[in-house]
Design a binder for these strands. Structure first.
Length: 323
DNA sequence: TACAGGTAGAGGATTCCAAT
DNA sequence: ATTGGAATCCTCTACCTGTA
């Protein structure tokens, strides 16, 4: 089994459980698990997946990764095919690492983890299995991040100022007159979810620095960068997968509204967000950024109002080919 | 504090219709 | 048949406000 096949099987298995409300690759902080599960009671489970026929060393790396998950989860599991588990069992003894065995679509918990003592995980409940996003265009995200870098001395000395700095950055590019609080917050959440700024250390992340080192004028490069951040780190790739499923199922949709309705329902079915989340509202902005990044086409109409969005695979294949 | 939801109206797409 | 452009319809953005 490949890495992504293991992820698929385990994800599908958890989605069937009625008390599981979110199954996603997305998480707020490092280290990023292959799968994060959230139960209705708020319990968070993080899982590292390993494929067949990897080196023995790789399984041990997975073990280490799994242990690190206790920074942010209640339970941590290593998922791997049973053949590989039996040859590695002697080494996978730490009982605070749970083991999930995967063979094709068969999934079984071999052992549940015993909660380790001496560490208090910082649990961050999530509401969506994808990045929170409102309003901003990519060059605006860049500008705000640049402002944060330019004022890093101020922010480091007085973290409370971070809001002012962001608002200043926004003022330079937008005519927003009111609601600074809401707009600043929306911006912060996006920077966090795209892993561009670390709000626990109050500094630009390595990925953020990568962005700032780029030439703003090179819009193609900028777009490529943000495609990766939104699709991979923001986990919008799962939404793309669902759009493709709908496109396969329907020749066309009677309106954008009808399409977005179907899409939001499917996202909920796939447990990418909680039932309480207004996915449809999120999608208006998500579709906007998909178009800006040339991840999907504009709404292509066929006759009177029937139409669909096409996924521009040529622009994103490089991101998913070898995962 | 931490997100979430709403909407006017610009601007784009399509249709309609008359003129060439 | 084709074109121009006015009328109409639809989509989407940019900004605004609400809630726990």
């Amino acid at each position: 089994m490949t890495h992504s096949e293991v992820i698929q099987s385990v994800s599908n298995w958890f989605k069937l459980k009625p008390d599981v409300e979110i199954v996603t690759r997305f998480s707020y902080s490092f280290p990023v698990p292959d799968i994060q599960i959230q139960y209705t009671d708020g319990t968070i489970l993080q899982i590292e997946c390993k494929p067949s026929n990897a080196t023995r060393r790789e399984y041990l790396t997975g073990l280490g990764q799994t242990i690190a998950f206790y920074r942010h989860s209640d339970k941590a599991y290593l998922a791997l095919p049973s053949k590989e588990f039996s040859s590695m069992e002697d080494f996978l003894w730490p009982n605070f690492v749970g083991i999930i065995l995967v063979d094709g679509s068969n999934v079984a918990v071999f052992r549940d983890p015993v909660k380790p003592k001496g560490i208090k995980p910082k649990i961050e409940k999530i509401k969506r299995g994808y990045a929170y996003y409102r309003d901003l265009k990519i060059n605006e995200i860049y500008s705000v991040l640049l402002e944060l870098k330019d004022s890093s001395y101020t922010v480091q000395n007085d973290p409370k100022k971070v809001d002012d700095v962001i608002w200043n950055g926004l003022q330079k590019i937008r005519n927003w007159k009111s609601s600074p609080k809401s707009n600043v917050l929306n911006t912060k959440l996006l920077l966090r979810d795209l892993k561009l700024f670390d709000f626990s250390m109050f500094q630009v992340t390595e990925i953020g620095k990568e962005l700032l080192a780029m030439d703003v004028g090179d819009s193609e490069k900028l777009k490529a960068f943000f495609r990766k951040q939104f699709l991979i780190d923001g986990n919008y790739i799962d939404i793309i997968g669902i759009i493709q499923e709908l496109n396969d199922e329907y020749d066309w949709f009677e309106s954008t509204n009808f399409f977005v309705d179907l899409l939001s329902k499917k996202i909920l079915q796939e447990k990418l967000a909680t039932q309480r989340t207004n996915v449809k509202r999120d999608l208006t902005d998500i579709i906007r950024i998909f178009k800006e990044l040339e991840i999907i086409s504009s709404w292509k109409r066929f006759n009177n109002k029937n139409g669909k969005y096409f996924i521009l695979w040529k622009n994103i294949l490089n991101l998913i080919k070898f995962r």
